[in-house]
Design a protein around this nucleic acid. Structure first.
Lengths: 147, 147
DNA sequence: ATCATTGCAAACACTTTGCATACGC
DNA sequence: GCGTATGCAAAGTGTTTGCAATGAT
């Protein structure tokens, strides 16, 4: 997934013209698994695209998420985060350092299925999000040191 | 849970003075399982408290959630919703009518445990939220009628 | 009288909108 | 040249903050 033409192809398949900027946005979100916010994307690309505006970043991310190229994450109160990983996984947000971690394991796929299976019949499940808040290993260690 | 004194007691146990307004806010969120937003609470109470301000509603809900009397929900992009049910359950948001449903089943508790068990060791789990988006039975039915 | 609670207005942060400009085919 | 992509400035929305007014004990 390091060749830009693959990103262009993804966009073309959704009838989105693969402008250089759009490819750059998709590439950044895909290759930097930091679940970036619009602002993070803006800061990352302003160097290469000096005329870049936040508006365009917002609009582009919005476009990608309505076209299911990216997922938007509701793990924060404030800002929306974007995630390029479309396969089932869990998000862990450290309440100390605020970093977001992907939790992936063999059983996560099954787990998601069990999850939607708990819905009463007649509910039509679409997307599922599992979020856990807590302390990441590093911040948990620090907490022990202090006390 | 229909007696206001029970709500007052909950507040007292957290060293929060149970003013009439605070009891009213807690009562409303608890007894109306609509997962209300701050605005919904404001609209519901402005009749009985004509001088009520949104500020106070925001501050009160914020106070309750930091004291773990209420949970705040990140199921929307825009507004924060509040939930008085503190036992494990899943939230289902209908993407058509936008209503939020509580999904409760005997297995949900176990499910939450399994969920945190998927975390690598050294991660300290706090709160977990499971959210499913899709169509509620009523809206799913309507969709079929149209097609 | 003192301290906590409430209210008002303004500030704030993030995001969206309207419209003008610039770019690609 | 035409149509889409981008950018700018302004508006919009939900929420928070500073401080004054009110209320309870």
């Amino acid at each position: 997934m390091s060749d830009n033409s693959e990103y262009a192809e993804i966009l073309r398949s959704k009838n989105i013209r693969p402008s250089s900027l759009r490819v750059a946005v998709l590439k950044y979100v895909t290759e930097n698994e930091v679940h970036p916010t619009a602002e993070t994307v803006y800061q990352a690309l302003i160097g290469s695209y000096p005329s870049l505006s936040r508006t365009t970043v917002y609009n582009t991310l919005h476009l990608f998420s309505t076209e299911h190229i990216l997922n938007s994450l509701n793990i924060e109160d404030e800002q929306v985060r974007y995630d390029a990983k479309l396969t089932p996984h869990i998000h862990f947000k450290c309440t100390v350092c605020m970093k977001i971690f992907d939790i992936v394991s063999d059983s996560v796929g099954d787990f998601y299925n069990n999850c939607t299976a708990m819905l009463p019949h007649d509910f039509e499940a679409g997307q599922t999000q599992i979020s856990i808040w807590g302390k990441c290993p590093e911040c948990a260690k620090k907490a022990i040191r202090h006390t």
